[in-house]
Design a protein around this nucleic acid. Structure first.
Lengths: 141, 141
DNA sequence: ATGTATGCAAAACATTTGCACCTGG
DNA sequence: CCAGGTGCAAATGTTTTGCATACAT
């Protein structure tokens, strides 16, 4: 719960909306959330907050390195905590659940390919859209 | 130029805006275009067209399998022709130019990783955001 | 003819910004 | 106290939709 530490280091003031946003990311079962998701969660929890604040806080947290912003195919931005190591994503086409994975070989190959084309990787995004082999998938129960 | 064939097969009527959109994708130097890009190109070429039509045509072409829609980090959707084999993308952070590449090893590893997690890949998107080693980069000259 | 396509304007979304008020340090 | 944060409403930028007209077959 002591998010004060991480927050303070960013130079941002420790305010209620900011603590609440972090707490939602930490306690929610779904680790990948949109601004709207968080807004609804906070309203449901009885907090008085504006959607604009959520957007501002999410952007600040992204710039501070606390969150990562993703652009999946939904048209809305999705955020997740940036506390773990880098990883890529498998999006389940049945239920939308996001599975994380890391594959060092793929990482190395990317660096090699980029070099061959005269680039140095700053960042990358690998998203696999897939059917679950088990039907129905039970990711979200 | 004979796009009539591909178009007819989709069941869509062969109209001027549709032919023109295909022609732009085929003749443009930049292969990855936004709706706005195409709109401006058509206006500049003296065509009378509505932006709404562009969006409708792009969406229909995507559904028909003639185009692929990408969501890079720009907030706008980017389209490209779907005639070539599958490939991934390197986005140049200096100029925005998109370089295409294929790496069979990466493809195979993805399939393997997906299987290990109980998935069958339907589609995937690998986007590398990178600095050009040459500065200034001369992709867009 | 007749069902589709189109252009325009208005609507629908996601996100950002201006501004007066509030609040953490 | 006061710089920075917040809520609200209005603005923005992208994409979609309703509708009357125009066009392909």
């Amino acid at each position: 719960m002591e998010d004060h530490e991480g927050l303070k280091k960013t130079g941002l003031k420790v305010t209620l909306p900011r603590l609440k946003v972090l707490s939602i990311f930490e306690n929610s079962k779904e680790k990948h959330l949109t601004a709207e998701d968080i807004y609804k969660e906070m309203l449901g929890g009885g907090d008085e907050v504006g959607l604009a604040t959520i957007y501002r806080v999410l952007t600040q947290f992204e710039q501070a390195g606390l969150l990562i912003r993703h652009h999946f195919e939904s048209g809305k931005a999705v955020f997740e905590l940036h506390d773990k190591a880098h990883h890529d994503h498998i999006v389940c086409l049945q239920c939308g659940h996001v599975t994380e994975f890391v594959n060092e070989e793929i990482e190395k190959l990317q660096t090699k390919v980029a070099e061959e084309h005269g680039f140095r990787i700053i960042e990358h995004s690998l998203i696999i859209y897939a059917d679950s082999i088990k039907k129905p998938c039970n990711h979200k129960k």
